[in-house]
């Protein structure tokens, strides 16, 4: 009798047999969404370079994905990926990392990559907290929530990542929660086919740290919270800001065409070569 193998297992390194995430972590939902997007687009893992930073979600591609994988320092995956993409413009360069990595310590690289419109697909796992280091406040932690570094409740306001990256100049920005794996797969597919900087923000559950800090509970309770608080962007645009307090706006925030950096470089080098002849 042949043991059943998960259909997406073919994209994983054979010797990596188990994931390191906690029970109920949303990272695995995003892992499947990424791999399913690759499968549905009929892409090969050799078409990709995956780049990640530091944090739980940085371990989504590393070492699981059977592809060229660059696991980098905290906050810097977008900067590394910029060099990779300019060196290999024909490859899909995907960054997978968390909200702390990409918007706190690495925020500057994220907005500048969006401004440059370099062809990266960034899957940003936003769990609203620092999971790996033990539940500290992130720039995405909702105001008022008590964490180990905000024991009296966070006094700070949080980033609204997707619209921030729209303002920075990205060609494609979408946000979904882990309650929307099918929509998420579609958004990742769109990000991968977009010529330009694509950010897919994944609002995800950290049942261990965020579940405890927010008192929402475990994975299922947080997923239910995502379901009941998600508002489609088309609907949200007609709502008052007061009505949107505590809501998660999901959908496509931007989808535009503009010149992409690595192909602009290819064009420039080509035109200079022609000019010399």
């Amino acid at each position: 009798m042949n043991a059943t193998v998960h259909p997406l297992r073919k994209y994983a390194r054979p010797h990596v047999t188990r994931t390191t995430t906690c029970p109920g972590c949303g990272n695995g939902i995003a892992t499947q969404a990424i791999l399913r997007a690759i499968e549905e687009l009929d892409l090969r893992m050799d078409d990709f370079v995956f780049v990640s930073g530091i944090g739980c979600s940085a371990w989504i591609p590393s070492p699981f994905f059977a592809a060229d994988t660059l696991h980098t320092t905290h906050g810097r995956p977008v900067a590394f990926a910029t060099g990779v993409k300019l060196g290999l413009p024909e490859k899909h360069v995907m960054v997978v990392s968390g909200d702390g990595d990409l918007t706190a310590i690495g925020g500057n690289h994220l907005i500048h990559a969006a401004r440059r419109n370099i062809g990266l697909t960034v899957v940003l796992m936003n769990n609203g907290i620092y999971g790996m280091t033990g539940g500290q406040t992130a720039p995405t932690t909702p105001r008022g929530i008590s964490t180990v570094t905000s024991p009296y409740g966070s006094l700070e306001h949080s980033f609204d990542i997707a619209p921030m990256i729209v303002s920075a100049g990205a060609a494609y920005v979408a946000r979904w929660t882990t309650h929307h794996p099918r929509q998420l797969t579609k958004a990742i597919k769109k990000g991968l086919t977009k010529k330009g900087f694509a950010l897919i923000e994944v609002v995800t559950q950290c049942p261990v740290q965020f579940g405890r800090a927010s008192k929402l509970g475990g994975a299922v309770e947080i997923l239910k919270h995502f379901k009941s608080n998600s508002v489609r962007i088309e609907k949200a645009r007609k709502m008052d800001p007061a009505e949107l307090l505590g809501k998660i706006v999901v959908g496509e925030f931007v989808d535009i065409e503009k010149p992409e950096l690595s192909s602009e470089w290819t064009r420039l080098i080509h035109s200079m070569r022609e000019g010399r002849q």
Binding site: A79, T82, G83, L86, G87, L88, W265, I269, R276
Partner: peptide, 29 residues
Amino acid sequence: LPQVGGIFLQTEDEIAAICSVIGASWAGC
């Protein structure tokens, strides 16, 4: 650099400079 087929990237800071240079080296540059 563009005259000889190369790329120059002015980064947002020196951290991005070293990181993108390392990334480019892994890309074969």
